[in-house]
Design a protein around this nucleic acid. Structure first.
Length: 620
RNA sequence: GUGCCCGUAGCUCAAUUGGAUAGAGCGCUGCCCUCCGAAGGCAGAGGUUGCAGGUUCGACUCCUGCCGGGCACGCCA
């Protein structure tokens, strides 16, 4: 962002000069700490430097502020300062001139960089790997996947918007004993002719998955109890029989896993069937969610299977890992529990796969940041894995320090009762069902309020509104917190919701349709922008903040900042729309200026929504 | 037992990474459509930021100790 587009940069320069002139004894340039003022009564921007400087110089803060003000040249950018400009302990309040704001907004829309809308393309693009979605074979996506899909996708979009190279990685749970169980189970069903590949659904697979797991579940505790309390030979025999069958099933699953690992064609074919059915359904849900997740982004656990032995050997060879009670562990400084990378029976664990993934992502893909959008309950796991990866040197970027490994953790989706969101029968709620219901509810409202629109339009609008409502709700709160899932609130169409943002966007568009009807839509492209009314000023200030907000999302991995911003922009626009006539402005120049403001606002809103991954509509 | 996360208006959430009188929405009380979309705007009431200390010119924010809630803790993923 150039100084022209960002008044705070100009202020920063002017203040730096003033501070240097007022206190030549200071060694280097001092950060003037320019921030946007929170309340209009304190102006538009403020400098908070005087307090810290006073401490350093041994002077009174207000005297320091006065000395800075005496040397300050704000010509062409801000209103002249008065005695009241120095307030409180030593804040220096600045009100921008309307023409400076107008110049800033005009620069946002400058030819050549108009699509940037004040978001600076990075001069040093990084490769950023974003781990997201994380579905499991033979399982539907459920509520938890809403967050693991939507949040990291929004983070990825922010990096892309800034010009970084993003590699999305969906770490699909497609390997290991549980998958072998269901593969064996399905093979049995297919061989017996009870199911056919052509009619097999993901729902059916999920049932087989549960059945297979249940079959392998050995009631060892029950057996012990029966023996300890001497509950009789008959009961003992029953429990023993259960354990025996379960053990058989368990052993069969291990054999299936071995076959998978040795690429036995028949077994792999069944596995592939499960894989295809699961991925088709899940990628369809991702697509419906407007998440940029496709088959190209899939990097399942199976893709690391051949590397795990090498990883453990490498760790042992270099003394990074040690053998402990027959298992292989990596001890990480500061953590009680070591990171377990190989079981005593020789099997690998998910930490092993994650280590292989970090190695690939940093060493092969060249990532300088690896971001995991995963449930907060896995915090300890990631501390262990990150610590182990760093200890092993897997996070070393060739010739460039250590990659940032970050867990963008999110909290749980809760039901109205404050407990994790489940169906009445205690099952996980299918994500697809959730989306259906949101769209269905949105449809009712759209039918009600926009009855005049064509059926097909209403269907399309309801789809966008429903998805926007769900995604906005998920993105708009601080991600590490739990939140309560509430259809009524997210679809209230009022206040802090996705639909409100769509509504604001629609109004920025509809004004042009109306203006065209009135024959008053000419001449606004490239028109001179003038900022005079308070509502115009607020709108301009909001527009100029956009670039910084996108940057902060990438830095903090917190999309809710962009949500918050878009609501503030929408509110500023609504006030402007209410208080400043556009089509019926007092004169042609003002009309053109305001039309152009509507256009820029609409484009920032659309761009912000796109960066969040929220679908938009032209009318509703 | 150890560690991590959370605690802000009646409810759901913010607070520009330490800045001023803690802000929005819902709900509540009033206004504002013969005029660009009222899914909107304006105004009002509503707070000891869980409690107690500490650091600082300044603390919702950082530190310590409590209280309350949640989660996680080597051979599952």
């Amino acid at each position: 962002m150039s100084a022209l587009e960002d008044p705070s940069l100009v202020l920063r320069q002017r203040f730096e000069a003033a501070i240097a002139a007022a206190f030549p004894q200071l060694p280097g340039p001092v950060d003037p700490v320019i921030t946007a003022s929170r309340q209009p009564q304190f102006g538009d921007f403020q400098s908070n430097a005087a307090m810290a400087l006073a401490k350093q110089l041994g002077l009174k803060p207000r005297d320091v502020a006065a000395a800075i003000v005496a040397k300050l040249d704000l010509a062409g950018i801000a209103e002249p300062l008065t005695e009241k400009s120095i307030a409180g302990p030593g804040f220096i309040n600045i009100s921008l001139r309307g023409d400076a704001l107008a110049a800033g907004v005009t620069a946002l829309d400058a030819a050549g960089t108009a699509d940037d809308l004040g978001v600076a393309r990075t001069s040093s693009p990084q490769t950023v790997v974003v781990d997201l979605c994380g579905v499991n074979l033979a399982k539907q996506m459920h509520v938890g996947h809403l967050r693991s899909t939507v949040i990291p996708d929004a983070i990825a979009r922010a990096f892309e918007r800034l010009g970084h190279k993003v590699i999305r990685q969906s770490h699909v749970g497609d390997w290991g004993l549980p998958i072998a169980m269901v593969t064996g189970k399905l093979k049995g069903e297919l061989d017996a002719g009870r199911v056919t590949p052509a009619t097999l659904t993901l729902d059916a697979l999920e049932q087989l998955y549960r059945a297979a797991q249940a079959e392998c579940e050995r009631d060892l505790k029950g057996l012990e109890a029966v023996r300890r309390y001497g509950l009789g030979p008959k009961l003992e025999a029953e429990v023993q029989a259960q354990v025996d069958t379960a053990t058989e099933a368990f052993n069969r699953a291990r054999e299936v896993l071995l076959k998978l690992q040795s690429h036995d064609p028949d077994t792999v074919a069944v596995w592939k069937l499960i894989y295809d059915i699961t991925m088709r359904a899940c990628l369809e849900t991702c697509s419906r969610l407007h998440a940029n997740i496709t088959a190209d982004h899939t990097a399942g656990e199976s893709s690391y299977a051949e590397e795990l032995g090498g990883v453990v050997k490498d760790l042992l060879d270099r003394g990074v890992a040690a053998i402990d009670q027959g298992a292989v562990v990596v001890r990480v400084q500061g953590l009680e529990v070591p990171c377990l990378v190989r079981k005593s029976d020789g099997g690998y664990l998910y930490a092993t796969t994650d280590l292989a993934a970090i190695r690939r992502r940093v060493q092969k893909f060249g990532a300088s940041r690896v971001i995991y959008g995963v449930d907060i309950r896995q915090s300890l796991h990631f501390q262990q894995v990150f610590g182990a990866a760093i200890k092993a040197g897997y996070a070393d970027v060739p010739g460039d320090g250590v990659a940032r490994l970050e867990h963008a953790a999110f909290g749980t989706v809760l039901g109205a009762d404050g407990k994790p969101f489940k169906t009445r029968s205690g099952e996980n709620v299918k994500l697809a069902d959730l989306l259906d219901e949101a769209v269905q509810r949105a449809r009712k409202v759209v039918d009600d309020r926009s009855a005049s629109l064509a059926e097909a339009d209403r269907a399309r609008i309801a789809e966008a509104v429903g998805i926007a409502a769900i995604k906005y709700m998920d993105l708009s709160t601080e991600r590490s917190k739990d939140y309560v899932f509430d259809f009524d609130r997210m679809l209230a169409f009022e206040g802090n919701t996705g639909p409100y943002l769509l509504y604001a966007l629609v109004r920025t568009r509809s004004i042009f349709r109306k203006a065209a009807e009135e024959g008053r839509d000419g001449g606004w492209r490239g028109a001179v922008i003038s900022i005079t009314e308070p509502a115009e000023k607020s709108l301009a200030l909001a527009l100029l903040r956009y670039g910084k907000v996108v940057e902060s999302v990438a830095e903090t991995l917190e999309p809710h900042r962009l949500c918050q911003y878009l609501i503030e922009l929408s509110t500023a626009f609504s006030a402007f729309f209410d208080q400043c006539k556009v089509i019926w402005a007092p004169d042609d120049a003002t009309r053109r200026s305001r039309l152009r403001l509507c256009d820029i606002t609409g484009r920032v809103l659309a761009d912000g929504l796109k960066t969040l991954g929220i679908p938009t509509v032209e009318r509703m």
